[in-house]
Design a protein around this nucleic acid. Structure first.
Lengths: 126, 126
DNA sequence: CAGGATCCAGGGGGATACTG
DNA sequence: CAGTATCCCCCTGGATCCTG
């Protein structure tokens, strides 16, 4: 009987809402997406940043720390000079990825209609 | 060949990112969820608010306006005294709902492990 | 009842400079 | 290179009061 568990989602402080809030963060989604589509096993900090022209290094660092904390990415430090850090998706992130993909595809399929609706409802000044 | 379209998701100002950002908003998700699980065709403003103990009326109003603007909910005003306004999910929202449901179920299935991981990585003060 | 209007604090997040 | 550390601005969103 999962239903009762799911119902808890509407309560404040609920862990489900907490998990969703951190996944649904725009930067977190984008990092997972980019890591997935890179075709590589892992990516360096600067590689990620180059794929996200509008993120600050501060936010990228914070986003990666959060993702690491929640077990979506691994952070591997190579003791070299200059330093090298590699980020890779975990199995947990990979299990989530099909869902994010369908959400992404839904957005692609519907964005034109949605943008059109927005314009219709633009506050009419007269 | 959809892939090239999807690739645009990493660009700033991309409509896909824009669509996702508004869907992934914590309040928007919760409103859609509650409307879906209510078992009713529509709900009143106060009914919604009672299901969301931690939202302010201001944020609920703003969230509903955004959802309406993007065509996820309809807003029906009954010219009565006292006024009555009913909110209902559109077909667009219903088409999105299975995806949100799988995302929610994923969160339920993984939240214990995620919460556990978070504690492990809690900064160790010594 | 369903909000609009206003005021205001807190924190998210940018810019910049510095370090191992 | 891959971050930390500061400063600081602005916008989100809460609290409160008012209205059709």
């Amino acid at each position: 009987m999962k239903r009762s568990t799911v119902q808890d989602a509407m309560f404040p402080g609920c862990p489900v809402r907490n998990v969703l809030a951190r996944i649904c963060d725009k930067w977190a989604l984008l990092v997972i997406y980019i890591l997935d589509r890179s075709g590589k096993e892992s990516m360096r900090f600067m590689e990620l940043k180059q794929q996200m022209p509008d993120i600050s290094q501060r936010m990228l660092t914070m986003t990666l720390r959060t993702l690491e904390e929640d077990g979506y990415v691994t952070r591997t430090i190579f003791s070299e000079i200059p330093p090298r850090v590699e980020y890779a998706l975990t199995e947990r992130a990979k299990s989530l990825q099909p869902i994010l993909d369908s959400l992404l595809q839904w957005s692609v399929d519907n964005m034109d209609d949605i943008m059109c609706d927005r314009k219709k409802n633009t506050p009419v000044k007269d």
